[in-house]
Design a protein around this nucleic acid. Structure first.
Lengths: 262, 262
DNA sequence: GCTACCTGTCTAGCGTATAAGACAATTGGC
DNA sequence: GCCAATTGTCTTATACGCTAGACAGGTAGC
């Protein structure tokens, strides 16, 4: 059906070499052992070694010169990464990049137990579930799944959701947003997400789960976001605060919208 | 020569499902979609799905009942996750969990260009590079690689590093730590890291890169940390601040050491 | 120029992961 | 009891990752 399966041994060697390059084990400009030598060293055939090197070359981590050898690129492959701390939307807009939203799905249904729990819903209560894709300069970087209790979700239209940030919609509807908790983790791309984000299945993703509460502690919104780490990362500035045993890092009051290299 | 190649698609699906179970996407006791449904969803054959489920069963993560279905084991191996925002070390200690450090490597050498850049080193200047593994209740959860300029690294011993947090060592040595920048992303486990963290190659990892600066802006420490997302995640509390167009999230002053589920 | 080593490209073949489908055995709901 | 859906166990065929080797072309040192 598919056929485009990635190699396995080749992939391992690719990851190994990539790690060595990234960690300085193979300094920039240095020459790698010849392909036959690498093949012998790793106990694989030369074809497999070449596959691994192909991937490194595609990442622009190495330069291959026929007759001469394979060299670690002196110039690192750069960082098209966007940046942000807690406020996802506005900073991007401020940075002047054109971002877009594509609404992939929109429906009212019974939420998964984990979501119902987090929002403090009664058994059987339904939510509005929407899946949106966020783009920057036309390239998708974020896959957002939100759940909003049905009664709140009815205060705006599907059309609204495809254009206006959800929190703005909520506050426009008179909902008072008070506080939120969020957790950042990592996961792998499944088939649907991989497809939407233009990735291969099994690619690493940044995951963010945020639960938004109103003043009385009732759940307002459950957001699950998946980010392509090569196009998006969380950046923040810290300052050293406290004294003695209580000395610790504390985040700088935001505002520090980080510049990006793009 | 070899021939015993591991499954590939099956392995991916295995990792994917394992991740979903571990992260609560598939709650304990819940029933998985049927094998034909999973096969269709992932675009693979049922045999492949069964291979993935075989692996999960071997991990005792699922129960398979012929005629009934496949269920996530209620016995939860899950959620020993730690939590924290910016100050990695102290909160864990406060939480009363026994944490440990294992020093994996310690040497002075020329750093990779990215590190030298970030620290603002002169060409040819060397750094002390150390790799440490952090454990919680005996289980590894974090793989730390630090670079410190040679002149600063010489103020403490290898033995110190294996027991005392690095920042404490630095401040004890009279170094003034002022501010830092950090970025959170996601990546895949390479061979060495996978081995150290007791993971399979290709597992997802949280990555944190922090650069610490002194009062005059000189680089003091470059930290690259990789976390097992099932054992560690970043959590934070946000409050809604600002007015009108400037309305945004802002992190709660820390202190809010988040409780964990034990 | 000559030589040694390198990457680039091709061939042939093996082992196995995967696909596609059939059928049996079990379970649970009606 | 009956029926639908499930897992368990086969079969056959295909796809492809990997091996092993040969050969061409480029590059650098002697």
């Amino acid at each position: 059906m598919d056929g485009s399966v990635e190699p396995l041994k080749a992939r391992r060697i690719y990851l190994l070499l990539k790690e060595r390059i990234g960690s300085g084990g193979l300094p920039p400009g240095s020459r790698l052992p010849g392909e036959p030598a690498l093949a012998a060293e790793h106990g694989v055939s030369r074809v497999t070694i070449r596959r691994a090197l192909d991937m490194l070359a595609q990442d622009e981590l190495i330069d291959r010169r026929a007759g001469s050898g394979t060299f670690v690129r002196s110039h690192s492959p750069v960082r098209p990464l966007v940046a942000d701390l807690s406020n996802v939307l506005s900073h991007i807009v401020e940075m002047g990049r054109r971002t877009g939203i594509r609404l992939l799905s929109f429906a009212y249904a019974h939420p998964p137990a984990a979501v119902a729990d987090a929002l403090g819903l009664k058994a059987g209560e339904r939510t509005q579930r929407s899946v949106r894709l966020r783009l920057i300069d036309g390239a998708p970087f974020s896959y957002l799944t939100t759940h909003v209790p049905e009664r709140i979700g009815l205060t705006y239209s599907e059309q609204d959701l495809a254009t206006v940030p959800l929190l703005a919609l909520l506050e426009r509807s008179g909902v008072t947003v008070d506080r939120a908790t969020q957790a950042i983790g990592a996961t792998l791309a499944g088939p649907e997400v991989a497809e939407a984000l233009d990735l291969e299945i099994g690619s690493p993703l940044l995951s963010l789960t945020r639960v938004v509460y109103g003043p009385t502690g009732e759940g307002i919104e459950h957001l699950h976001a998946l980010y392509r780490p090569d196009r998006y990362s969380f950046e923040m500035e810290l300052s050293r605060a406290g004294e003695g045993a209580d000395r610790r890092w504390s985040p700088v009051p935001v505002a520090a919208a980080r510049r990006d290299a793009g």
